[in-house]
Each structure stands twice: as C-alpha cells, then as structure tokens.
Amino acid sequence: MKLTRRQILKGGLAAAGAAAAGRAGARERRQPPPEAVGMLYDATRCIGCRACVTKCREENKLPFERSADGLYDQPVDLSGSTKNVIRLASDGTRTSFLKAQCMHCVDPACTSVCMIGALRKNPVTGIVEYDENGCVGCRYCEVACAFNVPKFTWEKAVPRIVKCELCRHRADPGKSGPLAVANPACAEVCPRAAVVYGTRAGLLAEARRRIAEEPGRYESRIYGEEDGGGTQVLYLTARGFSFQQLGLPDLGRNAVPAVSESVQHGIYYGMAAPVVLFAAALVAVHRRGGTDDQE
C-alpha cells in the first residue's frame, strides 16, 4: 500500500516532468493578425536628431527626465517617463543609432505572464495594450520581456507600467488603413523616413524593397521578421553592422514564452496532474480516517 502511494506521487511527478520536457518547444507558432500594424526602423537612415524622442514625450504627456547632475532631459534608456529613446551603438570603428521602444511581439512574453490581462495583445491590430485597471504592479512583465521594454514608475505612490502603445490614442477613426487604429508620433516627425508606420505586411515589403534597391547598404536580414516568434516593429541595419552589435537580443526563431508556456501547460495539461494528485492524497488521507498509525 505504501509503495503504491509513493509510486503514485513519484509517478505523477515524473510524468509531469517528462511531459514538460517533451512538450517544450512543441507549441504552435503564432501568426500576426492579418491587419497587424507596426513600425520599420532603418538604422542606416537615422541621423539621431531625436525629433522622435521629443515628440513621443510631448504626445504621450510624459514628464521630463533629468541627467545625474539634474540639468537636462537626457534619458539613457526607456523608463517610467520615456517610451522611446535613441541610443548610440559602436563596434569600435563605426557607429549606428538604435531606436528602442516596444517591439509589439507577435507572441509577446509580457502578455503571456500578465496575471489577469492588464497587458493584452489587440486581436486586430496586434498592438500590445496596457490597462492599468487590471494591473497589480507585480512587474512580472519587466522580468519576462527580452527587450527590457516595460518600465515602472518607481517614484510614484500610485505607480503604473509605462510602455509604447504605438500611439493608439492618436488614431483617427475617420481615416482608412493603419492610421485608423494608431498613429505613432515618432514615425510622423521622422525627417528621413527612418521610422515608418504601416501594416506589418506592408513594412516587410518596404524593407525588402529597400534591401533589394541597395543591397550593399543593408544586411540582408530583417530583424523581427522571424526573431523571437516575430515582432511587429522591424529593424534594418547597415551592412557589416550586426543586429547584436546594434543591441538587439539574439532570440532565435522561437517565441520567448514558448518554453515556459509549454512547461506550464505540460504540467497542468487539462489540470490532470493536480486532480490526480489531489484524488490520490484524499484517498491516502481517508484510508486511515485522517488519523495516523503510530509505528
């Protein structure tokens, strides 16, 4: 009897572990919604004028940041008051700009881990949207995001998560196409079309066109087409300047939450393991009426 019980427990554990390991990576690949919108950032065209940084702050009504000596608005990274920032990457001899904002992943880690859906991927536009009413401020999204995008307003007694939502508040329902659902201020003010807004499909075509037109200018790959399960913000980089040198993580093809979700759903497949465990425990406890046998 004892052996059996022990076996039930150990068997359950082993099965769960095996299922977890076996199912990892077996999760189906998500596709972006057909009307998904996004942005294309062309690092070779960016001149670092930071019109996008200033306009983003203005349009999102974000407070100014101060440098360490308290002088000036000089954000070094995304933060609770900065949703968009231009940084400088260097490979030793050459430099390139990098625009950082939410990537609007096709299969986002942040929405995968958010407990009750304060962060949610819009099923039509694919924009990763934030609703503070469902946010408890646990900051798991910050832990999960491979791009370090969601930020927290640490200095506030009533804090929130701050991240780019593609200026969906600037959408104009009167217009047709992508502008009807969002209108990123950064893309609007960019003087060199280094940041372009549009549908993801259209942007992929535009990126391929740019590469085809000037193959010597670009790396042939488009970052975000496949990376991390795909992102809705796409990047082009100068030939010989890799995306990793540009500061973008090397995620491979698979979506970031693929492994964790597979393990989690493997263990809790149909809630079978917990239910079996509970039944076994109940039987075991009942066998002796919940009391114990002094040995």
Binding site: G48, R50, A51, V53, T54, F64, L71, Y72, D73, Q74, P75, V76, D77, V85, I86, R87, L88, A89, S90, F97, L98, G247
Partner: peptide, 18 residues
C-alpha cells in the same frame, strides 16, 4: 530651472551602469 528641455546632442550608449 530649464523651462522647456529638449533633446540634447549627446547619445546614451547601449549599456549604462545603473
């Protein structure tokens, strides 16, 4: 105080010690 700060002419590096 600076009344209307706008973006400066230096750029943050990819990695900043924080």
């Amino acid at each position: 105080e600076v009344e209307r700060p706008t973006a400066p002419a230096t750029y943050p590096p990819l990695v900043t010690r924080r």
